[in-house]
Amino acid sequence: MNTKLETSDLRWTNHPADDPEWEEVSGLDDESNSVRTYQICTPNSPSSYWLRTRWIPRRAATILYVEIRFTMMECSGLNQRHCKETFNLYYYQSDSDEATPTHPVWMENPYTKVATVAADHLLRRGGERRSNIKLLRLEPLRGAGLYLAFQSQGACMALLSVRVFYRKCPPLSRAFASFPETIPHSLVEQVTVGVCVENAVTPPGEQSQPPSMLCGEDGQWVGQPTSSCACRPGYEAGETDVRCRGETVSFMYKIKVFI
């Protein structure tokens, strides 16, 4: 999910429904593109105001990242006793898009709390407008999808964009071995489904050990394959270690002239 790519209303859910304080408005991003944002300002109230996204399919990922860009007003300039400079992020897992205005119940349980998010840069009246970016990690995830929920209790803030994504190691050929696109499910994922590239084989005695490699949670391959592949007899390495080509054979032709 990436709200910066949305061209129409986000249609997220407000709670309480009879007193919706989160307001969806159009704004401009850093490149002056029109985006949909949510804002709230209740520095005089300690009540909880919730905002829930639509259902987000998880796909094959078990680790998701949430990138939040937001602004937050400094409380000292608002002169309100209940003002806060933080908000809470929660998520709720489900196997289908089942949420309603009253389900799940609007509280920490059944939601799972991710973090209390604080601003590194606060807005001051007449001061520079600076936004904050926070990257948060969700794991372990098991349901087919999830909802994100934002809870404000006295903050004066705006959600400028929300992006939900996962990382994956791209297809790779290295040391005459080929590995498929891989989604890591832990700090380091061992990939044991590698194969030798065309016209390459594992050396004798290693046939039962296909090439393996490590995929890091940051989407980067780590190190070198643990099982070796080499070009077949009659083939040689190309300009790189990802292709085996036929050997170049030079012939010397002798011409005999008979008189």
Rank of each mutant, 00 (worst) to 15 (best):
L123I: 10
W221F: 08
P203A: 10
L146E: 04
E139A: 15
Y92Q: 05
P225Q: 01
I183M: 06
K84D: 00
E67T: 10
R59Y: 09
M157F: 04
R137K: 15
R243I: 14
G154D: 01
G127Y: 05
A144D: 10
Q220A: 10
S228Q: 13
R81H: 09
E98P: 02
N2H: 11
S186C: 08
F258H: 12
S250G: 11
E236D: 07
F176E: 01
A177L: 03
P57L: 04
L89A: 06
V66A: 01
S76W: 10
E239H: 07
S131Q: 11
V162L: 12
G145Q: 04
Y111R: 09
S48W: 05
E236I: 13
V25W: 09
C41A: 15
G205C: 06
H185Y: 05
G194C: 05
Q153E: 15
S173P: 02
C229T: 03
W12M: 05
P46N: 10
W12H: 01
A177H: 05
I259C: 06
T202H: 08
D97I: 02
E217W: 06
R137Q: 14
L214S: 13
E247A: 14
K134D: 08
P170E: 07
G154R: 04
Q93V: 01
T86Q: 05
R125H: 13
S186L: 08
Y111H: 15
F165S: 14
P170I: 09
F87S: 02
T102Y: 10
A158I: 02
H185G: 14
Y65C: 00
V66P: 00
Q209M: 12
M73R: 14
W12E: 04
C75D: 05
C229R: 00
V195N: 12
L10K: 05
V249F: 11
E85L: 03
Y92K: 01
Q80I: 04
R124L: 10
R124E: 11
F70N: 00
I255F: 06
R124F: 15
Q80T: 04
G154V: 00
V35D: 03
M107T: 12
M252E: 12
D19S: 12
G77R: 04
E31F: 08
F70V: 02
G27A: 13
L10G: 06
G27K: 04
C196T: 03
D9N: 14
P20R: 03
G205V: 01
N33K: 12
E6Q: 14
S26K: 15
A17Y: 09
A149V: 09
H103Q: 10
S228T: 13
D29Y: 03
I63Y: 06
T62F: 00
I56W: 06
P211E: 09
S76G: 11
P171M: 09
T240N: 09
V257M: 04
A200Q: 07
P104M: 01
A118R: 13
M1N: 09
H15R: 07
R81I: 13
G234P: 03
W12C: 07
T13H: 06
D19V: 10
E24H: 06
V197I: 14
A119R: 06
S94V: 07
M1H: 12
G216V: 02
V201D: 13
Y111P: 00
V25R: 15
M72F: 02
R130G: 03
T100R: 07
S152A: 15
C83F: 00
